[in-house]
């Protein structure tokens, strides 16, 4: 297992290198001049523009720019944006927001999605089961943008239960955006759990467990739930990686200064260093949590061995 994890971690290095180059190239390929846009309505003087272009190597071809970027990166310098703010500070400021949002979302996925899925799976075809089926279908078919505005309007404005935007109320301000962000995955978790549980309840080993005279609770919890949760845990683990990539829509609608919003703004103003720094970090999270899932998989299912 240790060797497997080490090998997988080593493999992330070429992936990260490749990803960072691709992102760099894409930002390079964007039309327009970021320096010219920097001035906004009051154009910068040609001398200033020339000086800035020189400082950020914008006159060099792509590979030289990338080389300069990587050289600094390996010295621990993520570079600065065009206003001179270090990228590392942007990340330090934005990442905690995204992490809190992601944790809130995952908690909702587990609390609501898992519980609803388990209850629906145990009482298949019951009223509750049908409620779960209909509501999850509804949720996954509404775009998250609509859902976000609707939640803002209903729970924030009309009912006044939650703050509408910003992070002024501490963790409380993350509840509504967290719920909106979780909604899609939450519905998926509920359905996955339900299907997996319903399927496992028909398994031969569950019949054996009942034939052994085990109490119903043991049959369900020990011999059905554990096996049913393997695919669900896999999904949630991979989803954490995706959620840490920030949620551009949710963070923008609820005005949360997370990395999703930062990267969105950086793409618009063609801040190469910011985009590459943040997106490479997202890629790393994604790879890392997929590795965690694979390791967890072997822990949950003894049939899977990596050595």
């Amino acid at each position: 297992m240790g060797r497997y994890v080490a090998r997988r971690l080593l493999l992330t290095i070429p992936v990260l290198l490749g990803a960072s180059f691709l992102i760099f190239a894409m930002v390079y390929a964007l039309p327009g001049d970021p320096i010219r846009a920097l001035g906004g309505d009051r154009p910068l003087s040609p001398a200033v523009i020339a000086e800035l272009r020189e400082r950020f190597n914008l006159n060099d071809p792509l590979y030289i720019q990338y080389w300069e970027y990587m050289k600094n990166l390996f010295q621990g310098d993520l570079g600065t944006d065009f206003r001179g703010r270090p990228v590392i500070e942007t990340i330090e400021r934005a990442l905690p927001v995204t992490v809190k949002l992601a944790i809130t979302a995952v908690v909702f996925e587990i609390l609501i999605g898992l519980v609803a899925g388990v209850l629906a799976g145990i009482r298949r075809n019951s009223f509750f089961d049908n409620v779960v089926l209909v509501s999850t279908t509804l949720i996954v078919s509404i775009p998250i943008l609509v859902l976000a505005f609707f939640a803002q309007l209903l729970f924030g404005l009309k009912l006044g239960w939650f703050p509408i935007a910003g992070t002024n109320d501490g963790l409380y301000s993350y509840l509504l955006p967290g719920l909106v962000l979780a909604s899609g995955s939450l519905a998926y978790v509920a359905r996955l759990t339900r299907t997996s549980l319903a399927e496992n309840l028909r398994a031969d080993y569950v019949r054996t467990a009942r034939a052994k005279g085990l109490p119903t609770r043991t049959v369900i919890v020990r011999h059905t739930l554990r096996n049913s949760l393997i695919p669900v845990v896999t999904f949630i683990g991979a989803d954490i990686g995706a959620l840490l990539g920030g949620a551009i829509v949710t963070e923008t609608v609820f005005n949360l200064p997370g990395i999703g919003r930062e990267v969105f703004n950086a793409i618009r103003s063609q801040e190469g260093a910011v985009v590459v720094g943040i997106v490479t970090l997202m890629v790393f999270f994604f790879i890392f949590f997929n590795l965690v899932v694979d390791v967890l998989y072997a822990v949950l299912d003894p049939r899977i061995r990596y050595d």
Partner: peptide
């Protein structure tokens, strides 16, 4: 009825691989 299963009447099945839970020793 449950209390009879095991000490009173017990059963073994055809396919032992699928009849044993794969995730427990």
């Amino acid at each position: 009825q449950r209390k009879i299963r095991g000490p009173g009447i017990s059963m073994i099945f055809q396919d032992a691989l699928s009849s044993l839970n794969p995730v427990y020793s």
